[in-house]
C-alpha cells in the first residue's frame, strides 16, 4: 500500500514523462525511433497504472497494469517492428516536416488542454486529478502528430499514442474503466493494428511507397 502523497507524486511524474514522450514523438522524424518512444510510453503507462493499483488496492487495476504491459510494451511494439522490417522501411524518415513550427503549435495545444482541464479537475475528487489536463494534452498532441505525418506507419503510431492518452485519463482520473470495456478496447487496438498492417502491404503494393499523399490520386477526377 503506497501513501497517497507518494502516489500522487509518482503518477504526476509518469504523467510528465508521458507528455514528454508525446512531445518527443512530435519532434521525431524516424519511424523506428517512434516505435521506441511508443514503447517507452507503454512502460510509463503501465507503471502509473500499477502505482494507482498499489494505492487503491483495486484488484482490476493490477490486471489493467499487466494488460497494458503485455499489449503496449511487448505485443504492439513487436508487431510494429516486425511490420517495419517486413516492409523494409527502417531507414525511412518523414520528409518536409517543420519540427519547430509543429512543436510551437503543440505548445499552444498543451496550454489549451491545461486551461480546459483546470476547472474540470477542480471538480474531480481522485488524488491524481491534476493529470487530467496532461492526459488531454497527450490525446491532442497525438492527434496533431497524425495530422502532420505523411507516412502510414507514423499515423498508426499516432493513433496508438492517442489511445494511450485516453487510457491514462481513465486510469488516473477515474481509477480505470470496467474490466470488460478495457479488454474490449485492448482487443480493438490489437485488431486495428493487424488490419492496418495488412493495409500497409496493400498500399505499398499499389504505390511502391507508404507515403499517404499517393492516396490523393484515388479521388474522383
Amino acid at each position: 500500500m503506497l501513501s497517497t502523497a507518494l502516489t500522487s507524486q509518482l503518477v504526476n511524474l509518469c504523467a510528465a514523462v508521458l507528455l514528454l514522450l508525446a512531445f518527443a514523438m512530435l519532434a521525431q522524424r524516424r519511424t523506428v525511433a517512434l516505435v521506441d518512444l511508443f514503447t517507452a510510453q507503454g512502460v510509463a503507462l503501465a507503471i502509473s497504472t500499477l502505482v494507482v493499483a498499489l494505492n487503491t488496492g483495486h484488484g482490476h487495476m493490477y490486471y489493467s497494469a499487466a494488460l497494458t504491459f503485455a499489449l503496449k510494451v511487448c505485443a504492439l511494439p513487436w508487431i510494429l517492428r516486425r511490420l517495419i522490417r517486413r516492409l523494409d522501411v527502417q531507414w525511412e524518415a518523414e520528409s518536409r516536416l517543420d519540427i519547430t513550427a509543429t512543436m510551437i503549435i503543440g505548445l499552444l495545444v498543451v496550454i489549451f488542454a491545461f486551461g480546459l482541464a483546470e476547472p474540470i479537475s477542480a471538480l474531480a475528487t481522485t488524488i491524481t486529478r491534476a493529470t487530467l489536463g496532461i492526459a488531454l494534452a497527450i490525446v491532442l498532441l497525438s492527434f496533431l502528430m497524425m495530422i502532420t505525418r505523411r507516412k502510414a506507419i507514423s499515423q498508426v503510431i499516432g493513433f496508438l499514442a492517442m489511445e494511450n492518452g485516453l487510457f491514462f485519463a481513465a486510469s488516473s482520473a477515474t481509477y480505470g474503466m470496467p474490466m470488460l470495456i478495457e479488454f474490449g478496447i485492448a482487443l480493438d487496438v490489437l485488431v486495428a493494428v493487424f488490419v492496418l498492417g495488412v493495409f500497409f502491404f496493400q498500399i505499398r503494393e499499389q504505390f511502391d511507397s507508404l507515403d499517404l499523399h499517393n492516396l490523393e490520386s484515388l479521388r474522383d477526377k
Partner: peptide, 20 residues
C-alpha cells in the same frame, strides 16, 4: 535548440498545472 526551449517552457507549464 528550439526543442530545448520548448521543453523548458513545457516544464514551466507542467509546473503551473500540477503545482509542483
Amino acid at each position: 535548440l528550439a526543442t530545448a526551449f520548448l521543453f523548458a517552457v513545457l516544464g514551466m507549464l507542467v509546473h503551473l498545472l500540477l503545482g509542483s
